[in-house]
């Protein structure tokens, strides 16, 4: 599988490290922390997920279809968070 890094272009998945659901936000409220750490939507279909491009050290938010592994939009996690 090849993933497009916005900085480096399309690269082999060996250059990346996976880190799961990118729709979660670390909660400010303590009672929500367990859900944040453990509960997942785990969708069949499009999934927004974190991948670290270990070469340029950029955490990406990648949209990918869990049925087909087709790729959708890829964004830089840092920019997305600051923007939101």
């Amino acid at each position: 599988m090849r993933l497009p890094c916005p900085y480096c272009g399309e690269r082999d998945s060996r250059e990346f490290t996976y880190r799961g659901d990118a729709t979660l936000t670390r909660p400010a409220v303590e009672s929500e922390m367990a859900d944040y750490v453990y509960q997942r939507d785990n969708p069949l279909g499009w999934h927004k997920e974190y991948w670290l491009h270990t070469v340029c050290r950029t955490w990406l938010a990648v949209e990918r279809d869990t049925r087909t592994h087709a790729l959708g939009p890829v964004s830089i996690a840092r920019c997305e968070r600051v923007g939101s």
Binding site: G20, Q39, R40, D41, N42, L44
Partner: peptide, 18 residues
């Protein structure tokens, strides 16, 4: 493999990734 989908039918999320 598909437990999350079954749980979703009951409106629940699970501590599981496929």
């Amino acid at each position: 493999g598909h437990s999350s989908r079954l749980a979703a039918m009951a409106g629940m999320r699970l501590p599981i990734e496929s």
